[in-house]
Amino acid sequence: MFGIKACGIILIIVASSGIGFSISNIMKLRLLELAELKKLILMLRGEIKYIGTPLGEAFGVIGRRTKGIYSTLFQDTEKELEKLDGKNIADIWKEQMETAQMIKKSHLSDNDWKWLLNFAQNLGYLDKEMQLGTIELYMEQLESTLAEGNRSYGKNSKLCKCLGISAGLLLTIVFL
């Protein structure tokens, strides 16, 4: 009887701690994905600023250089842009974001996606200055999101882990 109880206690503590650690891990992965996105946007800025590469080609170059979750998004967008089939760039980008399976695997928040969608809506339009301005604006947004994320991660990560363990202990006491 004691053995069964001990097993139950262990299972409860492990499971609730796991939830805490998992939430903390999701927060960490989101930050890593945001950092990767920032790197890719920097590459896009370089392609536009120094080489004047058209968007489709630039997306392709960037997509092929990353193995992360954005590879599909950028490469599929390049393919769609090449079709020239009556859609504007914002619609294409939105479609790709919605259809890409990566969204399901992604750890970005809804707000992160919304910012990324807004960013693409002004791409391709007007001159190089305008493009670089749009990219700079998005970079600032990303940097502030990352800074805020890093700050809250340090605090919330520990909190989640502690809450997970504490919840496990509390449940154990309640069930006992």
Partner: peptide
């Protein structure tokens, strides 16, 4: 407008 967009590959800045 649509034709201009296609001629410039959605990237008017690249053809300034």
């Amino acid at each position: 407008n649509e034709t201009v967009e296609y001629v410039c590959n959605y990237s008017v800045y690249a053809y300034e």
